[in-house]
């Protein structure tokens, strides 16, 4: 019997409780069990139906969106995922014919309630769009615009630096803050839009296909950034790229397009909403399985 063996072997009773043999840690890893608690919900959608000209585009969606996690909405074109995400910060208000039924509770407050000001909602729930949409101004003014119109107090230089750093952009642009934002690359422009959003210190960031106009490296950077941001923000992302949802999100909702009985009008419906790894390794619904395995558009 070697000395080494003796040192590694401890008293049996003690060994049973030793950290290396901690059963709970070994069996239930970081991915958690099947019934992992979702944590605090930042949004509760109750029977939400969004219609254009009284024709529903997405119907009867009920789901909870967790705090400080990334929630992805996926599904084929026309399933209403963009429509759905736009009703979370009342961007649909900009379209006169749009209307929302059901309740969208944000921290238990219905954002479509009668006393709610859409502008207040959008201050707390930021949005990043499909195509980078920097303002035709300097990089500095792009970031400073939000804090200025909201009348935020504090040193503007500091606010701008914090926003840009938060979007991992500060080092790339700190020497050209007063140049026009249109001189940046597409990926940088999109991160500028994220930085702009961070500068007003929102609680939630909605991203509507934020990488669809970007190359893979820029996409990777934005995805890294999202994983970084979820420590402080709750993120909801719409993506037509299933792999992106798989890579970054904690929970995934899958929507489909359904034809009405008269087969004229199409509307989106929520099929399955679960932890992302469940959706991509063992979905409950066969339609989800067909979609994530790329067999059905």
């Amino acid at each position: 019997m070697s000395d080494r063996t003796m040192t590694e072997r401890e008293d049996p009773a003690e060994t049973r409780a030793s950290p290396a043999f901690d059963l709970s840690g070994a069996v239930h890893g970081s991915d958690g069990g099947a019934e992992a608690p979702m944590g605090k919900a930042v949004f509760r959608l109750e029977d939400v139906t969004v219609s254009y000209d009284a024709k529903p585009a997405v119907s009867e969606v009920t789901m909870d969106i967790p705090h400080n996690q990334i929630t992805a909405l996926i599904g084929p074109s026309g399933c209403g995922k963009s429509t759905l995400i736009r009703c979370l910060n009342r961007m649909n208000d900009l379209i006169p014919s749009a209307s929302v039924d059901g309740r969208v509770l944000y921290h238990d407050q219905d954002i479509y309630g009668p006393e709610i000001d859409a502008v207040e909602v959008r201050k707390r729930i930021g949005m990043v769009f499909q195509k980078p949409n920097p303002f035709p101004k300097s990089i500095y003014d792009n970031i400073a615009f939000g804090p200025r119109v909201l009348g935020m107090k504090g040193d503007m230089d500091e606010i701008v630096e914090r926003g840009l750093s938060g979007a991992a952009l500060w080092d790339e642009v700190k020497d050209r803050l007063d140049t026009n934002a249109f001189g940046m690359s597409g990926g940088q422009q999109q991160r500028l839009c994220i930085a702009r959003c961070l500068a007003v210190q929102p609680d939630v960031i909605l991203m509507d296909e934020p990488c669809s106009a970007l190359d893979p490296i820029s996409t990777g950077k934005i995805e890294d950034l999202m994983l970084e941001l979820k420590r402080e923000y709750s993120i909801v992302i719409v993506t037509h790229n299933m792999q992106q949802a798989a890579r970054v999100s904690d929970r995934t909702a899958f929507l489909i397009v359904k034809l009405d009985a008269d087969e004229k009008h199409r509307q989106g419906r929520l099929v399955e909403y679960d932890r992302t790894e469940k959706i991509f390794t063992n979905p409950s619904d066969s339609r989800t399985e067909d979609y994530v395995s790329g067999k059905v558009g």
Binding site: D31, Q243, A246, R247, T276, E277, F280, T281
Partner: peptide, 8 residues
């Protein structure tokens, strides 16, 4: 399996 499914 999760890594294979999600990160390809």
């Amino acid at each position: 399996l999760t890594l294979l499914a999600t990160q390809a």
